[in-house]
Structures are given as C-alpha cells and as structure tokens.
C-alpha cells in the first residue's frame, strides 16, 4: 500500500479551460453560449377566451427588478441580469449564461384591459396575464358625403 501519493504539480484549472475549449469547438457551440445570437429572455404568448398570457424564461432576477409596461398595444419587459459580484472577469472558466441589460417587446394581438395587467414571477419564470377588453358593440360609422 503506497504511503505517498505524488500529486500533479501543474495547475489543474488551465487544463480545465482547454478541455472546455475543445469540447465547445467539438459541438460547434459558441463560447458566449445561449445568450449570443438569441433573444433573452425567450417569450411565449398564449391565450384563452378571457386573456392573453405572456411567459418568459427569466431565471436569476428579483421580482422588483423586472420592469413590465404596456405602451400602445405592445408589452415591454426589461431588466438587467448581473453576474455574481464576487466573480472576477478573468476567473470564469465557462460562460454560457446570458448577462447584461435586456429588453423584449411583444405586440399584443388585441385590445386589453391595461389596468388589470398582472405579473407574477415564480421560480425564474415571468407570467404576465392581460385580460382582453370585451369586444364592444358594433358601431356604425357615418360616412359623410363630400361637397
């Protein structure tokens, strides 16, 4: 039974970095990861008879940091996902998650009751519920005859 175990003296972490690089090259995956070239956050728009629902994958925020607004038929959400304060730029060994300020805008297909907008943030998923405005009575438009 060996009493001593000789440890490798070379640094393990630069090695790790090279492995990651190789792996990333191998699968044709961009180092900047999911955030690059893709929208953040990803949105789904759904509906039922009474309302539209917009959901967004927004892990890693505080609810109060997510800004949700409606302006002339567009729902706008924005925020900023910061990297952990303790992480130094050069200490990253792998970086696939999106960081930075973001904004998404989605056009709502129909009139909604803006004052009844409701936003919930649970387990990193934002869910905005937008009740549809009841369709009004058909309104006859008088056509004026020109001079």
């Amino acid at each position: 039974m060996p009493v001593f175990r000789w440890r490798e003296t070379r640094s393990l972490l630069p090695d790790l970095e090279r492995e990651f690089e190789r792996l990333l090259e191998g699968v044709g995956f961009h180092v900047a990861g999911r955030g690059s070239g893709r929208s953040f956050p990803l949105l789904n728009l759904l509906e039922d008879a009474d309302s539209y629902v917009v959901t967004a994958e927004l892990p890693g925020h505080e609810a109060k940091e997510i800004e949700v607004t409606i302006v002339s038929g567009y729902l706008s959400i924005r925020g900023n996902r910061r990297p952990p304060a303790e992480a130094e730029e050069e200490s990253f060994r792998r970086r696939e998650r999106f960081h930075g300020p973001w904004q998404r805008r989605i056009q709502l297909p129909d009139r909604i009751l803006e004052e009844q907008l409701r936003a919930d943030y649970v387990a990193g998923i934002l869910r905005v519920t937008l009740p549809k405005a009841p369709s009004g009575q058909p309104r006859q438009i008088a056509v004026n005859e020109g001079p």
Binding site: S39, L42, L43, N44, L45, L46, E47, D48, Y52, V53, T55, I106, P109
Partner: peptide, 10 residues
C-alpha cells in the same frame, strides 16, 4: 399553461 392556446412560441 395547459388550458391556454399558444399564439407565439419561442
């Protein structure tokens, strides 16, 4: 969101 109908899906 099972009862909802998707309109736009990312």
């Amino acid at each position: 969101t099972a009862e909802l109908v998707p309109i736009h899906q990312e």
